[in-house]
Amino acid sequence: MPHLVSPDPIRTDAAPYDAVLLLSFGGPEQPEDVLPFLQNVTRGRGIPDERLKEVGEHYYGFGGRSPINDQNRALLAALRESFAQIGLDLPIYWGNRNWAPYLTDTLREMAAHGIRRAVVIVTSAYPSYSGCRQYRENLADATAAVENAPAIDKLRHYANHPGFVGSFVESTAAALAELPEGSAIAYVTHSIPTAMNATSGPDGNGYVTWHLDVAAEITAELERRTGVSRRTDLVYCSRSGPPQVPWLEPDVNDHLEDLTAAGVPGVAVVPIGFVSDHMEVIYDLDTEARATAEKLGLPMARAATPGTDQGFVTMLRDLVVERAAAERGEQPERPCVGKLGPGWDNCRPDCCPALRRPAAGASAPADGSAHQASSDQTPPAAPSTAGPKDNA
């Protein structure tokens, strides 16, 4: 599939950057961490500890440990090895928004090491407030809090890069191979309030538009390979917040029921909204959705996320080289697939604005902003079926 193969970078000069920062959501690593972690995530929203403890039960079901930090450690190791393979001499640091290593502490360490300018890899691939702008706001706050903090540039959105799409092509093909002929594909991502989607990206509706474009590219490549057309849908998981607030639908579990009623013989669940198998994947899909499928008697196979797939890691490395070249005033090749073109290096000031959030204890507005999810979703403020979120 030549159009899904990333070209080798023309050069490995990293100037003007002297470091890379991997920025993620963070997650608890032991049972004692769960409540403090959830307090960090929901700080300022007035959510009582009793409710957070309820949400924390999903973490306790996995030993009180989110997989996200271990996945970031593995990604760090893979990136360092990939950098070394091409002689890209840049240190890679790691910071989180909501748990150790905290972003501010990491920037303080970078400043102590004399780092002046760094490029940041965010473990969120799509445009939205919580998947992009909120990270940029956190970076701005942390930079302001650290004396002599390095200047930071964020890589472009990479969901439609060949390295990301190609990884899902391979994992979706593997999942379909486990299923009966004629099985459908359910592309899954994190639900967000419809009002947040409406303001995502420079022109609005960017969150859904990017997902649909990525799904169409995966589908087209699989059809090109096999000559088989099949049903595909974009569905959602991890909805939270009060039921009267509209969020993106359908929910993956409702969709599985619809597929069964339609007589579909099986389904490949493909989590295109996620870069690794963190809590939304292992709980919302591998636990809840799989239980739904088993109850329905619907064969289901879940496609792997990119994680430390070589193509994905190479993509991240190449994006660092690409951004460095652009900052030097060059015109680097900007690989992408689909109809939308490559992501933008610099977001407009009005891109992906935050939804209004009421003061702690106030009733929720109709736009659902009191319960904003991130693509690393935050826990719900009111009882709901949604689990915790540490999507990065």
Results as ranks from 00 to 15, higher is better:
residue 182 G to K: 08
residue 232 T to W: 07
residue 181 E to V: 14
residue 181 E to T: 14
residue 215 A to T: 05
residue 175 A to Q: 05
residue 192 I to L: 13
residue 263 G to V: 07
residue 249 E to Q: 12
residue 213 D to L: 12
residue 187 Y to R: 01
residue 201 G to E: 02
residue 197 N to G: 02
residue 211 H to K: 09
residue 211 H to A: 06
residue 230 R to D: 06
residue 234 L to H: 07
residue 232 T to R: 10
residue 258 D to F: 07
residue 247 W to K: 04
residue 201 G to I: 03
residue 195 A to V: 05
residue 189 T to E: 10
residue 257 E to T: 12
residue 241 G to Y: 12
residue 203 D to S: 13
residue 239 R to E: 11
residue 207 Y to A: 04
residue 207 Y to N: 07
residue 261 A to E: 13
residue 217 E to Q: 15
residue 249 E to I: 01
residue 253 N to G: 09
residue 270 V to K: 00
residue 203 D to E: 14
residue 192 I to V: 14
residue 251 D to I: 02
residue 260 T to G: 10
residue 173 A to K: 13
residue 248 L to V: 13
residue 193 P to Y: 03
residue 196 M to V: 11
residue 208 V to G: 00
residue 255 H to T: 07
residue 214 V to A: 02
residue 218 I to S: 04
residue 191 S to N: 01
residue 267 V to M: 04
residue 179 L to M: 06
residue 268 A to S: 04
residue 250 P to G: 10
residue 183 S to Y: 11
residue 245 V to E: 14
residue 197 N to D: 15
residue 217 E to M: 13
residue 255 H to A: 12
residue 175 A to L: 04
residue 203 D to N: 10
residue 220 A to Q: 10
residue 181 E to P: 07
residue 268 A to Q: 03
residue 234 L to D: 00
residue 250 P to S: 05
residue 176 L to F: 04
residue 200 S to L: 05
residue 211 H to F: 13
residue 183 S to P: 01
residue 269 V to M: 13
residue 248 L to P: 00
residue 179 L to G: 07
residue 200 S to Y: 03
residue 216 A to H: 09
residue 209 T to F: 10
residue 226 T to K: 04
residue 193 P to W: 01
residue 193 P to C: 13
residue 219 T to R: 09
residue 209 T to P: 08
residue 254 D to E: 15
residue 211 H to P: 13
residue 208 V to K: 09
residue 186 A to L: 11
residue 185 I to N: 05
